[in-house]
């Protein structure tokens, strides 16, 4: 009898999931609507994303400050958003026929970012990285960090499988492999790591939290627990970026959000990027 009840419950859940998955997605909207949901999806390909209406954001090249991106690449990014009231998750979907997740000289990687003003107001700061005294919060995701989180190792052979490498000084005796002394020595031979540069790895998350007050000013932000996950398939990226819901925006209110995309195959990095302007972000839209 107990087994029957469990089977029945499972059947009801499956039917509900299928119904959600097969339901016709809401029509595209002119703003980003963060739909309320009890549990936020971690993966970009979960069916629950269909509950959120899609906003198709047209992208423009960053052409305000040098170095500019003069050749447009990513034409649009498709956005969906879900929130549980505490966290808001965005799913960015853009076409990119080349998966670029291996860094190297002249080898840029695919990336995207979500930007929200630190303080909500009728006039958001400049859409390009904010302005002095009016900062923006940015969560930045990178394809190579995703590869590391997915299991890519922290060695040059993980980037260049056929590389021959002389022994590193920090692998020499009398340093004991895996010892704290060896780890300390290895950090000395990786200057950016020795200075705790967020960029330099090794990484446990594919995203980085930043705060900026204008172009070229991004700095590491106090940790807010943002997460991310990206999947490349069939010539497009789907990336989920989740961050705390802005505390000064209540249900039914609006703030602003902007997005940026970098295509590694087009040598896009830093200021050379495709971006959107500010887009209204509606909190807690009905499901």
């Amino acid at each position: 009898m107990r087994a029957r009840r469990q089977l029945l419950a499972a059947s009801v859940l499956t039917a509900a999931s299928l119904a959600a998955a097969c339901a016709k997605p809401p029509a595209p909207v002119q703003e980003v609507v963060a739909v309320r949901t009890a549990v936020l999806p971690a993966a970009p390909d979960e069916a629950v994303w269909n509950a959120a209406p899609e906003h198709v954001a047209k992208m423009i090249p960053q052409d305000l400050v040098e170095p500019r991106l003069l050749a447009p690449s990513t034409a649009e990014v498709r956005i969906r958003a879900l929130t549980n009231g505490e966290t808001v998750a965005f799913r960015l979907n853009w076409a990119d026929t080349t998966k670029s997740d291996t860094p190297g000289p002249a080898q840029m990687v695919d990336a995207c970012a979500v930007q929200i003003p630190q303080q909500n107001g009728p006039q958001p700061p400049a859409p390009q990285m904010g302005e002095i005294g009016r900062p923006v919060d940015v969560v930045y995701w990178r394809a190579d960090w995703q590869a590391i989180v997915n299991g890519r190792g922290d060695s040059i052979r993980d980037l260049y499988p056929n590389a021959y490498v002389d022994p590193y000084p920090f692998n020499a005796r009398p340093l004991v492999p895996g010892s704290p002394e060896q780890a300390d020595m290895a950090r000395r031979y990786a200057p950016a790591r020795a200075l705790d540069n967020n960029r330099s790895g090794p990484r446990t998350a594919p995203v980085e939290e930043l705060v900026a007050q204008g172009p070229g000013t991004s700095e590491p932000a106090a940790p807010r627990g943002s997460t991310g996950r990206g999947i490349w398939a069939a010539g497009s990226w789907m990336v989920v970026i989740a961050r705390p819901w802005p505390q000064d925006v209540r249900d039914g209110q609006r703030t602003s959000v902007a997005f940026a995309v970098w295509q590694g195959s087009q040598h896009e990095a830093g200021a050379r990027k495709m971006r959107t302007g500010w887009i209204p972000l509606l909190a807690g839209g009905a499901r």
């Binding site: 860094p103 000289p105 990786a190 950016a192 790895g201």
Partner: peptide, 10 residues
Amino acid sequence: FFNPMTGTSE
């Protein structure tokens, strides 16, 4: 030179 392991230039 770009260092692909640290992601910075040196």
